[in-house]
């Protein structure tokens, strides 16, 4: 049983305190859904979980081991989907995906996984199309197919449903459900609901310095 947890996380952007004292736990097969108004720190939290942003205070741990001690091990077990789709215009869909799969996953069976990932997100017919001809929604699907093409237990998805049509949202939901059924965990930030089965909701407004002013001196002075 693996668990991914954060304890007392605090996020500073420049001199602004975005959130503080945030705790969460995601068990195997768990889903954590981040909600909150714009600017409440959903993306910042996801970047923090991905190791792109160092927490100003607090620790992230995997099975009780602080992830800051072994950043490469942490990176090997996560997939991060941010705001950008990073599809290279001159590479085909398959080339784009196989690069990320090779960079991320173990060697072997990559071809089969790639084909499966393309199928699952209905991209098989776009396999040899260069990235520059894709629509916004198709690029988004390529980015999500990247997550499927190399196995990793932790998915960090920042607004995965952006630019997707309803059928594609359904496919993403199915993919997440299958990932969780296999013991994977997922952290999603969302405005539009991708309704996941029994998610843990985390409302970032509760931890926000600006949106929920808690009686704690010092933080405001620091800002």
């Amino acid at each position: 049983m693996a668990t991914f947890s954060g304890d007392g996380l605090t996020c500073l952007r420049g001199e602004t305190l975005v959130f503080r004292g945030l705790d969460f736990t995601v068990p195997d097969g768990g889903a954590l859904v981040l909600v909150g108004p714009n600017g409440s720190g959903k993306s910042s939290l996801l970047r923090m979980l991905a190791g792109l942003l160092a927490p100003a205070a607090g620790t992230l741990s995997w099975d009780g081991q602080p992830v800051a001690e072994e950043p490469d091990e942490h990176h090997a077990r996560l997939h991060y989907v941010g705001h950008h789709d990073c599809v290279k215009p001159v590479l085909t869909v398959a080339e784009n995906l196989s690069f990320w799969a090779r960079l991320h996953g173990p060697a072997g069976a990559a071809g089969a996984r790639l084909a499966e990932a393309l199928d699952r997100l209905d991209l098989a017919h776009l396999r040899d199309v260069p990235g520059r001809f894709l629509s916004a929604g198709q690029k988004r699907r390529v980015n999500l197919a990247r997550v499927l093409a190399a196995p990793a237990p932790l998915w960090l998805l920042d607004e995965p449903a952006t630019a997707l049509d309803r059928a594609s949202v359904g496919r993403v939901r199915e993919a997440i459900a299958a990932h969780r059924a296999a013991g994977g965990m997922v952290v999603v930030s969302t405005h539009q609901d991708i309704d996941l089965a029994d998610p843990t909701m985390l409302d970032l407004a509760r931890f926000s310095a600006r949106l929920a002013p808690a009686p704690r001196a010092g933080a405001e002075e620091a800002a």
Binding site: A50, G51, L52, D72, E73, H75, L78, Y80, G82, C86
Partner: peptide, 8 residues
């Protein structure tokens, strides 16, 4: 960002 979160 993705290269920075890759396992190398």
């Amino acid at each position: 960002e993705l290269l920075a979160t890759a396992p190398l």
